[in-house]
Each structure stands twice: as C-alpha cells, then as structure tokens.
Design a protein around this nucleic acid. Structure first.
Length: 465
RNA sequence: GGUCCCAUCGUCUAGCCAGGUCAAGGACGUAGCCCUCUCAAGGCUAAAGCACGGGUUCAAAUCCCGUUGGGACCGCCA
C-alpha cells in the first residue's frame, strides 16, 4: 500500500510552501488509495511550540487535508531513535564524538574564513576507548564512491560521497537529529514515497547511507520545487502573507487556495480550475515540474473570485458570517432571513474577490445608514441633482410592492418624462443609498435594501444638503 | 567557496522523455473594443516568451556540451 507522510516541524505556522507539500502528499495518497500520515517533527525542543502544532493542524483542517494516522510526535518516540542509534554505535557504524558545540562552531567559522568547506573533521572517529565526557553520536559516512538518488521528479541525481560529512544522529542530550529520525520514522511507519521540498534533496544521500547502515530499503523519493517570492528568493515572512491561516482571515476559500497550490508546479492539460475530486483523479508525481515557481498573489485572487462565483449563496452566507460580525454589520444572535441574504449575496458575488470584500459590500444592505464617500457626494449630490432626488423619492413612496421590476418602471418613466439620462438619476440615488459610486444594478440594490431604508436614506441626504 | 537542482510570455504553465504537424498553445495580469445606470461579470482583440553560444541532424523549444542567470544545501535546525 502506498503510504506517505507530511512531517512539518512546529517552529512556525503552516506556510504556503508547506501546505503545497502537504497537498501533493495528500493528493498522491488519495489518488493511489493509500495512507496519509501526519507526523510532527518536534525534536528541536527549543523552537517547537504547542501553539504552532495547533496552528498547523487547524490550517490542514481548514484546507481539508485529512490524515489517516497521527499526528505522531517525535518527542513521544525518543526511545525508538535511541535504540537505533545505539545499535549503529555497537555495530561501529557510528561513533561517540566528544567535541562540544562551541568548539565545533569555532572551527566552522575558521574553515569558512579560510574558504574551506565547513565540514566536521572527523577527529573523534578513531578514538578507540570511550571517554567519561558527554558525547554525541555521529554517523560514519563513506569517504569515497557515489550515491545515486532516483528521484521521481528530478530523475537520476548523483552525489559524491566525499562531500558527505559524519553527521550527528544523537545529540549529547540524548535527542535525535532530523536526518536520523526521518529515516527511522519513515521506516517504522512503512512510508513508501517521500514527497518533500527540494531543499531536502541534498539530505537524501546522507539518509540513504543511514538506511543502508540500518539494513533497510529506502523509500521512493520525490523532491518538489520550491515556491519563491516575487523577488525570486525563497518565500518567507518578508513576502507578506505566508501563513496559510491568514488567507482564511483575508477571506479566501480553502478550495481556491488548494486549487492555486496544486497548479504551482503541477498542471493538467489547459485546465485551470479543478474540483478536489478532479485533482485526486489527475494528480501524478510524474507531471510535477522541476523548476521553482513564484508565488503569484494576483492569480490566487482571481481563482478565489472564480470560487466565490461558483459557490452557492447559502454556503457563502455561512462563510461570510464571521466577517459580517467582525465588521459590525450584524450581531451574532440576530436572525437574518436566508432568502433575503442569498439575494443580497447573489447581487454582489461576481463583484468581490474575497469574503472580506464581500462582507464590506454588504454594509449597505445591512446597516440602517451608510457613510457617504466625500468625493461621490461632491460629484453627485448637487444643486442640479437635488430636485431629481426629491422627485424620485416621491415617486418611490407611492410603490406598494417595492420590487426590482416596479422600481425600474419608476426610474424609466421619470427618465422619459423629464428627458434625462438614466445615469443622471441612477448615480445620485446610488450615492445616497450605498454611499459610493459603485454597486450592483440600482433597481436590484433598492429592492434588497427595502423601501423603508431606501426612503430614509434619500430623505436624510436631501435634508442634509 | 564546495555540492546539488533548475531555465518557454512579467507570472503560472502546455509542448521536451519517443526531434518535423510549434511562423510555440492556455491561464493570471496588462491594453483596447463591445455590453452598460456605476462597478464588476461576460464576449472579442492585442502586446508579450523558447536565456546565450556551440554541436548532433535533412530538421532542435525538444538531444548533447559549455556559458550565463536563478535557487537550494553545506548545524548537537528541520
């Protein structure tokens, strides 16, 4: 059975790059009816936090990337790693290193200064008798030869063993290091395919030697390209929103984010928009590109607008509620007629690219009075338009059924009778009712706002002039 | 510095593995036009790319080599 894992380290929130790695793993597992495991790599105790673990889990749930096993935590499994590490020590495939981190750092700096590769000089490798000093366990890398990685995405990659260093597998405090736990865990969890960022490609030969020393067969590897910021540097906090959950807060739909992430480094014919089912059906690691991709926020925005258009109004309203409450347009406990809300959302959804924008646009449907933009007021609420506003108010007052159709008739009649253009009256009314020069069709807006609020707002602006 | 990866419009990409049907297709963004009560949406059109240099071949975006450019990794971080 195909088994993959997503193994984030909880030293930060789930970022865009990590989310795509998780997505590719998830898609691969679902496509192959395999298993997707979540594993938390928290052996860096000083930087890992509970808060980040929860945040990562929340983000994965929001994206709908469900896992079949886990979350496993490496800090719960320390005995296992120790067991394997000591096994290697006994078999003399690893050795005790008595150098202190301070000494190592100092030597590193010196090597760097002299332009030499900052590699451990293996000075403890030949110490025969154990000393009574604190020690770390280092793995014995071969001095020569080559290691071949047959990567599903990158193809055949050959590394010189002479470039590999004797890495620490168990720290002096007894905790294991990354390159060691991945191997042990991927073996113990029967991972068949390791799908991870390209930043791990250089680690792969080291891990392959650990597999060999442990006498186990390495899994298949697939190293997916990096996601870069617009400046071509690796995506980081400097580039703004990299935390997946901020996209939730900014009003993006999870399926839009998924769709966007899937198309970063992967494609299927000329298709841009995919349902989750389609992604699962079409996704193949062989179709993942080799080149790094730049995060294109504009395209994500476009995709989100497409998803908003495709989403039915009832679901949009549910998604919108937290935004409306936060913006102060509705109260949590207040009941809103769902049919009315649907009508309102329908009028706006093709004009908004995020839920946040949509919420903001809803203000003139929900509030009693809206703030009027100064520029709009100057341009459209004038001596010239005031009589028109008065007249349309009077005409609208007479309406029994305040429907779009009837409202339209009132406008058209007035335009014909007075020999004016529709815009001459529609724009001032729009400003009076929405506070802005931009809105859905004016008849539609008036119907949704309703007779009472419409007349109140018109009278108020006339009175205030 | 060393090692490894990568290279098609500004961006995401199709095409490359199995060279010809590619005077390179789609999408985002940009510009223009149409529609129009505003703004969107929608429709149509346009500008925009095979990094460079060699080689192989009747034929190269596609195969090979080099150059340049970008990225990643070199930790008792993951």
């Amino acid at each position: 059975m195909v088994t993959v894992r997503f193994a984030p380290s909880p030293t930060g929130h789930l970022h865009i790059g990590g989310a795509r790695t998780a997505l590719f793993n998830w898609l691969f597992a679902r496509h192959n009816n395999g298993k997707f495991i979540l594993r938390i790599e928290d052996t860096d105790r000083s930087r890992s936090t509970e808060e980040y673990i929860e945040s990562i889990i929340e983000a994965l749930k929001w994206l709908g990337l469900d896992w079949d096993e886990g979350p496993f935590r490496q800090t719960d499994r320390l005995d296992i790693y120790r067991k394997y590490a000591y096994k290697l020590l006994e078999e003399e495939k690893a050795y005790r290193c008595y150098c202190t981190p301070e000494e190592l750092e100092q030597r590193r700096q010196e090597s760097l200064k002299q332009g030499k590769p900052p590699r451990y000089d293996r000075r403890c490798r030949e110490i025969k008798n154990s000393l009574s000093k604190p020690f770390a366990i280092r793995f014995k890398m071969p001095f020569e030869g080559e290691t071949v990685v047959n990567d599903i995405v990158k193809g055949k990659v050959i590394f010189k063993n002479s470039e590999l260093e004797d890495l620490v597998i168990l720290r002096s405090d007894g905790t294991p290091t990354y390159n060691f736990c991945v191997v042990v865990d991927d073996y113990e969890m029967k991972i068949t395919h390791v799908i991870r960022g390209e930043d791990h490609l250089n680690n792969t030969p080291k891990q392959i030697h650990i597999y060999k020393a442990l006498g186990i067969e390495p899994p298949q590897f697939a190293h997916i390209p990096m996601i870069l910021g617009p400046d071509r540097a690796r995506l980081s906090k400097r580039h703004g929103a990299t935390n997946v959950l901020t996209y939730k807060e900014e009003g993006y739909l999870p399926e839009a984010v998924i769709n966007f992430l899937a198309r970063l480094g992967w494609s299927y014919k000329d298709q841009e928009i995919f349902t989750k089912e389609e992604l699962i059906e079409y996704f193949r690691l062989e179709d993942v590109g080799k080149a790094n991709a730049i995060f294109n926020a504009e395209k994500l925005l476009w995709l989100n607008s497409e998803y908003i258009k495709m989403t039915n109004e009832k679901r949009l309203f549910e998604l919108l509620k937290p935004f409306l409450i936060k913006d102060g347009y509705i109260k949590e406990e207040k009941q809103i007629d769902i049919e009315w809300a649907s009508k309102a959302i329908r009028s706006l959804k093709e004009r908004c690219r995020t839920l946040k924008e949509l919420s903001h646009a809803m203000r003139y449907y929900l509030l009693d009075y809206v703030p009027i933009e100064e520029k709009a007021k100057e341009k459209y609420i004038t001596e010239k338009t005031l009589p028109l506003l008065k007249e349309i108010t009077e005409r609208l007052e007479t309406l029994q059924e305040f429907s779009q159709k009837n409202i339209e008739k009132i406008f058209i009649d007035m335009v014909n009778e007075k020999g004016i253009k529709l815009g001459d009256i529609a724009q001032p009314v729009r400003v009076a009712i929405t506070g802005s020069t931009v809105s859905p069709g004016i008849y539609e807006v008036l119907e949704i706002v309703g007779k009472e609020k419409t007349l109140n707002r018109l009278r108020r602006i006339i009175y205030a002039y």
